[in-house]
Write a protein that binds this DNA or RNA. Structure first.
Length: 448
RNA sequence: UCCUGAGUAGCUCAGUUGGUUAGAGCAUCUGACUGUUAAUCAGAGGGUCGUAGGUUCAAGUCCUACCUCAGGAGCCA
């Protein structure tokens, strides 16, 4: 008796009659023998049809089935060394479910603009399929990591009344009679409230930045996970971050080998992602940059300037090219801490031993993928925080609830934010974050 | 916002110092083929050269403006 199964389960059905249902990925024929590659979302299976083994209608189906047409194939599963995946279906009959019109995405190469305009179809391609599988694994690993450690998920609002950090531009909208509202650019402030209530929390959801950034690392809508822990200091924050990254990478390595193979990822570079990671004080990172520039002659410097890389001055924040220089020195992610307070957000606590430095850290991914984590120990003193809000000319009343957290049982606490898309791009080894999210939103694209 | 580059067939591209009817591969259609792997082989159809002006006997090619897209900077995850 036949049985409906998924392609990922083929190996348990060798010698048995089964039915597969899906879409035609591609087909080949040499006259009396036909090969149809069936895609069902769990994998791809080659269906072999021989003229003298099937009825006329089944043999004629080959001509009718266009790329991405839906059909069901019934036959016997057999091992086949030459078949993609190692198994094929020796097909006895084919049932056509629907015939696809001429499909725009051919097996040949395409340009970015075309593929992005057909993102809803592009997702069916094996490479995009593999990326989404890895993304799913990363998200699952994130949840498991925190859940196993007793963190409570805290869903922060997406519609917010005010700017959390002030600097970034926000998407604005009208909110009934209440005036303007904004799409959240970080759940952190709410995470801090949650940490005071639940001890250990993580906020996980989409965030929005109306920055006009046009690089391979930016989206206007992206997902961020933000743990926040009461009684944790910067040291603990960094340790949590490195254990977290190790956990995610090792989970993908364990469960998504096939997908990494499709993506042609050099997994040896991922296998070495084990804590502890190198940690550099800002001054040490600055020294690397100083040596980098001083080792160059004038012509080499001019070349760097022409590509947009500005010479680093002590006290500056690091630009993307600076981060590439620093992370290029290491095979593991590197954490830089104790940034100058002047270039960091107002809610970050300063180090009492180095009052000009913030208890902040960034984690830079290897292979030039840039910043994947930004975190800090938060300012927990009421007067200090209030003073900083005033210094930045921000409306104190908007921060009233946030200041309350310092009025009622304030404790040291810390947390960080991890960009999901940058992390997935790095693990997959792909060029651009836009391929890591099903429907990317960039400065020039809101469709499909 | 700034810098750089690109828009030619459904898709990816070629198109020389401006010169007759703008080419190729893939996709589509027709035919051949019993183990193909982006199958192969033979043939056919398919074009407002991003838009608007301008120079010229003549513009895909030169000039101007604009539009769209891509890469980078800044900002950030």
């Amino acid at each position: 008796m036949r049985q409906d199964i998924y392609i990922e389960d083929l190996k348990s059905f060798v010698g048995k009659a089964v039915t597969l249902r899906g879409w035609l990925y591609t087909k080949r024929s040499s006259g009396k023998i036909q090969f149809l590659e069936l895609r069902d979302g769990t994998g791809i299976c080659q269906c072999v049809v021989m003229k003298n083994q099937v009825d006329e209608a089944t043999f004629a189906a080959y001509d009718k089935l266009t790329q991405e047409s839906a059909f069901a194939a019934t036959g016997v599963v057999q091992e086949a060394a030459k078949a993609p995946g190692g198994y094929e279906l020796f097909t006895k009959s084919i049932e056509i479910i629907s015939i696809a019109q001429e499909y725009p995405i051919s097996p040949k190469e395409h340009g970015v603009e075309f593929l992005m305009g057909n993102r809803h179809l592009w997702l069916r391609s094996s490479r995009q399929h593999a990326i989404q599988k890895v993304r799913h694994e990363v998200v699952h690993a994130i949840r498991d990591f925190f859940d196993e450690r007793g963190f409570n998920l805290l869903d922060a609002p997406i519609l917010t009344p005010n700017a959390a950090e002030g600097t970034s531009t926000l998407f604005e909208l009208d909110y009934f009679d209440e005036g303007k509202a904004y799409l959240t650019q970080s759940g952190q402030l709410y995470g801090e409230a949650g940490a005071m209530a639940l001890g250990k929390v993580y906020v996980f959801g989409p965030t929005f930045r109306a920055e006009k950034s046009k690089t391979r690392r930016h989206l206007t809508e992206f997902w961020m996970v933000e743990p926040e822990v009461a009684f944790m200091d910067l040291e603990g924050d960094m340790q949590l971050a490195e254990e977290f990254i190790e956990y995610i990478v090792q989970r993908v390595l364990k469960n998504r080998q096939n997908e990494l193979k499709v993506l042609e990822r050099d997994v040896s570079k991922l296998e070495r992602i084990k804590a502890p990671f190198p940690k550099l004080h800002y001054d040490e990172a600055a020294q690397i940059l100083k040596e980098y520039w001083s080792s160059m002659n004038e012509d080499e410097k001019k070349e760097r300037f022409a590509s947009g890389h500005k010479e680093f001055i002590y006290g500056d924040d690091f630009g993307a090219p600076d981060e590439a220089v620093i992370s290029g020195k290491f095979e593991k992610p590197v954490m830089v801490h104790h940034y100058p307070a002047a270039v960091k957000a107002l809610y970050m606590k300063r180090d009492p031993k180095e009052p000009d430095k913030a208890l902040a850290m960034d984690m830079l991914a290897p292979e030039g993928y840039g910043e994947i984590i930004g975190g800090s120990q938060r300012e927990d003193d009421y007067e200090t925080l209030l003073g900083r809000i005033k210094e930045h000319n921000l409306p104190v009343d908007a921060f009233e609830w946030y200041l309350d957290l310092r009025k009622y049982g304030s404790v040291p606490h810390a947390g960080f934010g991890l960009g999901v898309e940058r992390t997935v791009a790095w693990i997959c080894g792909i060029e651009h974050v836009r391929e890591t999210i099903p429907f990317p939103r960039t400065i020039s694209r809101i469709w499909p």
